[in-house]
Design a protein around this nucleic acid. Structure first.
Lengths: 259, 259
DNA sequence: TTGTTTATGATTGTATTTGACTGATTTTGA
DNA sequence: TCAAAATCAGTCAAATACAATCATAAACAA
């Protein structure tokens, strides 16, 4: 016969391994009543170890992931993953890189884990948290105020720190791309931070799926001519290629079908 | 016939080997009363050697395991939760608080979510990530280099940012507490950051379970007299109360039984 | 020796764990 | 949308385990 603590430990292990478990399943497994299982799950939830659901419980990670990357980004996840993969090919072992906050750059965090040695600067608490178990990387966070809308660190503290750093490559997200009005983002303070990111990089690389083109969203953070590479997907208009070529921006179009 | 200490040692060995033992089992094995076994188990638990359960005791964790900060099931979670709860009672609506990185302060993040308006400074990417969905808080991260061992942001960037901030209350963790040698932590750079935290707070509050007492761990970051409150659990020696009183530190002992 | 401390065991009232039961809530499917 | 089914929270009682207390006896100190 098991002690309650042992049972709870095993339930936790099971859920962490299988991501989910039902009350009845656990009843059967441990030969105890539903009441007991519910009490166990309640306590495990209070310990922030699992998340209860109607009928059972699920692991915590799976909840963390879904809501953060939310809304339409799910629809474009494949595009963003493909773009991130291409972006990772720009990186060389030993590089010092900067990864902007945002859902577009998030898949890049997973892509870079193949490298053995990088210095990674990121102003996203989510990105930084994902890198906490990668001791092969030197991870620098430029601090600042947490914008809850984008989980980015922004503001004067961020800018001041960024201004004393220089990186080989900066991977930057954007909300709007327009030939005339350049790169724009909805928030003024965030624009200031992005502007600095572009300035402090030898190679400013913008990651943007096709939906960002021909959009202007309030605050400009860079002229198109100030960036060096623009990685996007193959649903972007062809004529951008030549237009961007003329102002010295290399447009890198990722083919979604292949890959 | 065995001495008490011998019996305790054998109980500990047995549990470490078999992962579990019941009170009656041990009674039988050592030919002593239940009272005696319970007393032994109580002491072994206080030494953080085993975990008691109703009916017996279990090992703390499977042997091959090196506890990391990310460990969901922290060894002494209950103590830390109780301490965090008490710590939260020091906070007032509207306060500017600082929360140090570390497992002891982590439960405090959950406790503060009851408040409507706080400014929270934290040098932990894990803590910050947990606060990203609490828009009622102004969250400031003082940046820095990510120490993978503790998930804390440390180093010159951290220190420089902290030096221009001032908080009402700072909740700080520690690895060692000693009357003569003060508060210590194993890492020199982290000590520097903690030192600043103490300095920049109107009210420096140290959170530490009893196991931290009478320990010295390399790098000192503060004299005991420099902190204002020390929250711990009721397994700490009584005489600390009077000793700390003399140097102006208020010792706040959380009763674990009463929750 | 004689008084004191310490370890232990017996006793008693209290706490905890668990499963059954009840009514409330949520989900599901027509 | 509504009603049935499933799931849940809350309460209760029984069994077990517990803490607290006191008494005893051995070990210790004066």
């Amino acid at each position: 016969m098991l002690y309650g603590e042992e049972r709870k430990q095993l339930i936790q292990n099971y859920i962490e391994k299988h991501q989910r478990a039902s009350v009845l399943q656990l009843c059967d497994a441990f030969n105890v009543s539903e009441s007991t299982i519910r009490r166990d799950l309640k306590e495990l939830e209070q310990d922030h170890v699992i998340k209860r659901t109607h009928g059972g419980a699920i692991a915590l990670e799976s909840v963390n992931f879904e809501p953060t990357v939310t809304e339409k980004s799910d629809r474009f996840l494949a595009e963003k993953q493909a773009i991130a993969k291409r972006a990772a090919s720009y990186i060389q072992e030993g590089d010092t890189i900067l990864i902007d906050a945002g859902t577009t750059t998030l898949p890049l965090v997973y892509e870079i884990k193949q490298f053995q040695s990088l210095t990674v600067v990121t102003n996203s608490v989510v990105h930084a948290e994902l890198l906490k178990d990668s001791p092969q990387f030197e991870v620098i966070v430029p601090g600042g105020r947490l914008r809850h809308e984008t989980q980015a660190l922004v503001g004067p503290i961020t800018d001041q720190t960024l201004s004393i750093l220089h990186v080989d490559k900066a991977f930057i997200g954007t909300n709007g791309i327009d030939l005339e009005d350049g790169l724009t983002t909805p928030n003024l303070i965030e624009a200031s931070t992005k502007q600095l990111m572009v300035q402090q990089a030898s190679d400013a690389i913008v990651l943007a799926d096709h939906s960002k083109f021909d959009k202007i969203t309030f605050a400009k953070f860079a002229d198109l001519s100030m960036i060096h590479h623009l990685i996007t997907d193959d649903r972007v208009d062809d004529w951008y290629q030549t237009e961007l070529d003329q102002i010295g921006v290399k447009l890198d179009i990722v083919k979604l079908q292949e890959d």
